[in-house]
Amino acid sequence: MRWIPEYQPDVERVERFNSVARITHWGHTVTFLLCLFTGLILFLGGVDWLAAIFGGYRGAGLVHRIAAVGMTLMLVFGMLFGFKGYIAWVKDIFRFGMNDVKFISIFPLDFFGLEMKFPPQTRFNGGEKMNSVVLMTMVSLLVLSGYIMWFPSIFPAGLVRFSYPVHDLAMIFSTLMVCMHGFLGSFHLGSGESFWGMWKGTVRADWAKHHHAIWYEETYGDKAKAEAE
């Protein structure tokens, strides 16, 4: 049984994510998971064994805060060194159209293994666009509400009170998305190649052509090549 698609260095490959995007992505992965597992201790309640992994409740609180600062730094790092990338990302999200709606509506069947015929997709397909919007919003909410709860004395009490349910809800939606994203970006056979796009930076050209036809044409297609020359 294959876990993730094999990395094939000998076929034609195209760049999907540059180094800044990749560092930011994996930086967020590590800090998010640390925050998640330390935070779940309070959310679930009664999971002393989880707290013990981080050295008890106080240790978990410390890890949560350190990871939270790390996550904030990752945001700053991405904004500083990859601002253009962020803009391109957001611009692509706003290219949401009928193709994306079609994609999202038939994707559940593909998700469980049926082969579906999808309309051509831009750099990010309908599902990835949805994932991006939800995660961008939820992580921003997590960061904002988190700092409000960390320094409650400098914020109005009503805002602090409001931050608790917001932090929990944003955690739930972002974790939901992270679960799906983590699975689709690795173990899902059809889309698993995208794992190498984020790990090594490149994906197979034929995969890119098949899964992100519009993006491939615009970036690596004949027209783009002609323009570059």
Binding site: F112, G113, F187, L189, G190, E193, H210, H211
Partner: peptide
């Protein structure tokens, strides 16, 4: 859902067409 998908994907796609050249 991910776990179910992990299994059904591998049951339905017994060949490895996905990994080689796309669909």
């Amino acid at each position: 859902a991910s776990a179910v998908s992990f299994v059904t994907n591998r049951l339905i796609n017994k060949g490895d067409d996905h990994a080689k050249g796309g669909h």
